[in-house]
């Protein structure tokens, strides 16, 4: 399995816009959003805005960077 990222802007209704679509073997499995300054201490971390199939998790952690998020997504897909 290989993950592929595609940068996008997501209309979250907030300042959080910088995002990445995450594809696994060509399928969209997650949308990651980078948290803006409005989240203060969490600004710059990555949030699982949406996860599909096995990546769906209401209690996913925040990720320090995209690599960490990809590692977590890979674990979910194992």
């Amino acid at each position: 399995m290989s993950l592929r990222l595609q940068p996008v802007q997501v209309a979250t209704g907030s300042d959080d816009a910088e995002s990445q679509l995450v594809f696994a073997d060509g399928f969209l499995v997650a949308v990651l959003v980078c948290l803006s300054e409005q989240h203060e201490a969490d600004a710059g971390k990555w949030f699982l805005e949406a996860g599909f199939g096995r990546v769906d998790d209401l209690n996913a952690p925040l990720f320090a960077d995209v690599d960490e998020a990809q590692g977590w997504i890979e674990q979910q897909l194992l």
């Binding site: 209704g13 907030s14 409005q38 989240h39 209401l58 925040l62």
Partner: peptide, 11 residues
């Protein structure tokens, strides 16, 4: 989530 809560408060 706390992220959605924060966004909603801001809105």
């Amino acid at each position: 989530t706390s992220v959605h809560l924060n966004r909603s408060l801001m809105e």
